[in-house]
Computed example of a mutant assay.
Amino acid sequence: MSYKLIVSKRLLSTSIGRLNTSSSTSSNVILGKISEFDSSKFNFNIIANDPPSINDINADPIQLALNSSPINTWTKDQIKQIYDTPLYDLIHFSQLQHRKHHNPGEVQLCTLLNIKEGGCTEDCKYCSQSSKNPTGLKASKLLQVDQVMEKARQAAANGSTRFCMGAAWRDMAGRKSNLKRIGEMISTINNELGMETCVTLGMINADQAKILKDAGLTAYNHNIDTSREYYPNIISTRKFDERLQTIQNVQDADIKVCTGGILGMGETSEDHISFLYTLSNMPKHPESLPINKLVSIKGTPLHDELLEIPKDSERHLKFEQVLKTIATARIIMPKSIIRLAAGRYTMKEYEQFICFLAGCNAIFTGERMLTTMCNGWDEDIQMLKNWGLVPMKSFSK
């Protein structure tokens, strides 16, 4: 098996070292110059024996990911080895994985509309829409189809190719008329605008998932939020396994799954690893994986709890933890679309750029998220232009 890689001088020694230890037998590395010597690049071929086997417990997990089909049997130890890789190397390998499975010049532009705001009976500690959290947000009724279409047309005109709709409900029990109206929203957007559609409506059963599928829904969002271990610290009104059951109902209906979580809720790096473990061991990896960076909202319990955590604690989210989570997700879930979601507006442009280098290839853009700020279309189009990137077309993945 032959490989051809271009690497920087700084990465040359570490890359060769990893490649030479990726199997039980040694590999031969042959260096040669590209026409005239270029001090920043080397051209080399790696002539290797068989790629590492998934059954080889001693295999380097990064090389295992790079040389295998998507794996759904990752261990937490393997994921931790990847997550703990020095960041410079980690981003290098995540970029290799990204370019292997995606067009690196394309970014999916998604717009999110809150079609039913507030009044949710869940007790999520981070959420301004919970009726249990005194944030001053008033509950609203479900929007009409023409109101949604006005926003969808605006999003399409500004380059968005996936239109996402969120309703603050715990579940869809007893909401047949609302589900019918949402189905009409989905089919109208599909037929008139040719956009991908996504909804997040809380827990749904198999019959409700089939109704959404028949309406033409592209994807259903249902985040697992955090690790299984940390989850009880954030929510008590819905069990972690109930979230997984909804995801299974969506997959059984042949709807794409959009599921991810929120970083910065007081969790640790071990929780990031466990969070990725749950997602990467699903029978089918998520079609899209939103990474949210918590926007702490006054009136939510989590807002006050985070203020009490010492500033030097690992439980205070650092940017490198965001990067490690994204890069690790890209390596172990190579075909998933990884989306920078809520909280992106708090990032500097160069930080977003590094997130894209680490494997992100989608963003939310538009007027707002559900209840928090969002980077605008004009700003994002200019940003992508600066980077040489273009919007991904609908239904191209």
Rank of each mutant, 00 (worst) to 15 (best):
M1H: 07
S2E: 07
S8A: 11
S8P: 02
R10G: 02
L11S: 12
L11M: 14
S15V: 15
T25W: 01
S26W: 03
S26N: 05
V29Y: 01
L31T: 11
D38Q: 09
D38F: 07
K41D: 04
K41A: 04
N43F: 06
N43M: 02
F44Q: 08
I46H: 12
I46K: 11
A48D: 09
D50M: 12
P52L: 02
S53G: 01
N72C: 00
D77V: 07
Q78I: 05
I82Y: 08
D84S: 12
T85V: 02
P86D: 12
F93C: 00
F93G: 02
Q95W: 09
R99Q: 14
K100G: 00
H101Y: 14
P104V: 07
P104I: 13
E106P: 00
V107S: 08
Q108W: 13
N114W: 14
G119P: 02
T121W: 13
C124L: 03
C124N: 00
K125C: 05
C127D: 11
G136S: 03
G136P: 06
L143R: 15
L143K: 15
Q144N: 14
N158H: 11
D171I: 13
G174T: 02
K176Q: 10
N178K: 10
N178Q: 13
K180Y: 07
I186T: 06
S187T: 13
I189V: 14
E196L: 06
M203K: 10
I204M: 11
D207A: 15
K213A: 02
T218N: 11
T218E: 04
N221L: 07
H222Y: 05
P232N: 04
N233K: 14
T237R: 08
F240L: 14
R243T: 09
L244A: 12
Q245M: 08
Q245A: 11
I247K: 10
N249K: 05
V250K: 14
D254L: 02
V257W: 06
C258N: 10
T259W: 04
T268G: 07
D271R: 06
D271M: 05
I273E: 03
S274H: 15
T278H: 09
P283M: 02
L289T: 15
N292R: 01
N292F: 04
N292Y: 01
K293H: 08
L294M: 10
S296E: 02
G299K: 07
H303I: 04
E308C: 01
P310K: 07
D312E: 12
D312Y: 03
E314H: 11
E314Q: 14
H316P: 01
H316C: 08
L317Q: 14
Q321K: 09
K324G: 12
A341K: 03
A341T: 05
G343V: 11
R344A: 09
Y345E: 10
K348G: 07
E349Y: 13
A358H: 10
G359E: 07
G366I: 01
T371Y: 13
T371C: 07
M373Y: 08
N375H: 02
G376I: 03
D378R: 08
E379Y: 10
D380F: 10
D380K: 13
I381T: 05
S394F: 01
K397H: 10
